[in-house]
Design a protein around this nucleic acid. Structure first.
Lengths: 225, 225
DNA sequence: CCAAAAGTGTTCCGTCTACACCCATGG
DNA sequence: CCATGGGTGTAGACGGAACACTTTTGG
């Protein structure tokens, strides 16, 4: 290696994935027991080192795919975390990514293989290193973004009821929303389409199923809830 | 080094500083000619490598201090940039930080020593590597933040007129603001204090000077413009 | 027949926006 | 005395928040 920057010291760089799901009306986080030293056995986000031949996004996607078997998930960078002692073993700089997935898409078997599980975000254990801080930042980001970006659909099946959608907003924002006002606003959004399908799993009467029309949104990507 | 993570490859990590100033009613960016290979002579943000004994924030502060001689500047992380080929020399991951400074605080001599200068953000040259992209992200971030955080004062002297303040908002948001509506809103904010000093440099009549009371803001850090 | 979730409008209030003229002063 | 930037108020539009009852149906 006849590099330009040889005199400077290199560091390890990892990516950590903050994976949110939505289940039983709660926002949940996917964590597992750390399988390597240092910190073996502690609750931790799922992560991995960045390889020489991949970008940060690629690394995050690889880690996500490895864990979930899913591709093209919604993903956003939360930030870089670089305190010297953040990792108890070595100096490691980590770039955190936040991903949203529909829990139904996640195969239970894979989950057990990797030893990870869903925990409610408002009842989270202590995590390895600065992972709690990363999660906190990710949630702050989510709360800001959900009002101006159609994120919520990534947490739901492709067909969903308005009640479900409202619960997603309530879970992320951490506050109750008036049903009538909520539905009024949703009706004005033309890329949230009502189907004539009815879901009877949650009530006797049944509720109409809706769908997020991504194409239509992309033609005019304006969203304001 | 008997490390835990020995088998993984390390990478270079740098910080790049996106330094904004406000002058002549325009938002400006501090850039210079790159003094090292590769890319020597190209316009570039000011940056440096992260050392083994400093956090990312420390590194950014060191670079900022080295360049400006100023400490405790307003600074926010913009994000980590890690495309494989982003640096034409080697694989370098860079963490960008956005800083706001009052151009009057910046010694002209230091500026010349480092060969940097202020350029208007809406008339920026092509920059080294992905620096234009970083700047674009930083501006997007600024625009969002300026509505909910009292950032603008970092770009102004400690005493400023309401016209100056309005021009900061206009420069960052890129749109004109109605003078009367603007001043009405400012009056409701109690941590923006009117002094009985008058600035006569910009008009014959003179304009009252105002001051940002940081203490008062921190007691009740709510800001909404 | 009743429990449980789905669905539906109106009123009020506060906030944002548009808009034009007088003031003070230095040169 | 006039050119220049500083400073002020009001009316109408709009959007957000509060609020309660009817419908459907499986068990």
């Amino acid at each position: 290696m006849t590099g330009y920057y040889g005199e400077h010291s290199k560091v390890w760089v990892s990516v950590d994935c903050i994976i949110f799901g939505f289940d039983h009306d709660k926002l949940k986080l996917l964590i597992g027991r750390r399988q390597m030293d240092p910190g073996r056995g502690e609750w931790s986000l799922y992560g991995g080192f960045v390889r020489a031949d991949e970008s940060l996004e690629d690394a995050a996607n690889r880690v996500l795919y490895d864990l979930t078997g899913l591709r093209r998930l919604y993903m956003k960078q939360v930030g870089a975390f670089g305190d010297i002692d953040r990792d108890p073993g070595e100096r490691v700089i980590s770039v955190a990514y936040c991903a949203l997935i529909n829990v139904e898409d996640y195969d239970e078997k894979l989950m057990q293989e990797h030893g990870v599980q869903w925990v409610p975000v408002d009842d989270m254990p202590q995590l390895y290193s600065d992972h709690n801080y990363m999660v906190k930042k990710a949630i702050t980001l989510l709360r800001r973004r959900i009002k101006s970006e159609p994120l919520s659909f990534n947490l739901l099946p492709s067909l969903f009821t308005l009640t479900q959608l409202q619960h997603v907003y309530e879970a992320i924002l951490g506050e109750e929303i008036d049903k009538r006002n909520f539905r009024k606003r949703i009706k004005q959004i033309d890329f949230i389409e009502k189907t004539d399908l009815i879901d009877k799993t949650t009530s006797k009467r049944g509720a109409y199923l809706y769908r997020f029309n991504k194409r239509m949104y992309q033609e005019e990507p304006i969203f304001k809830l």
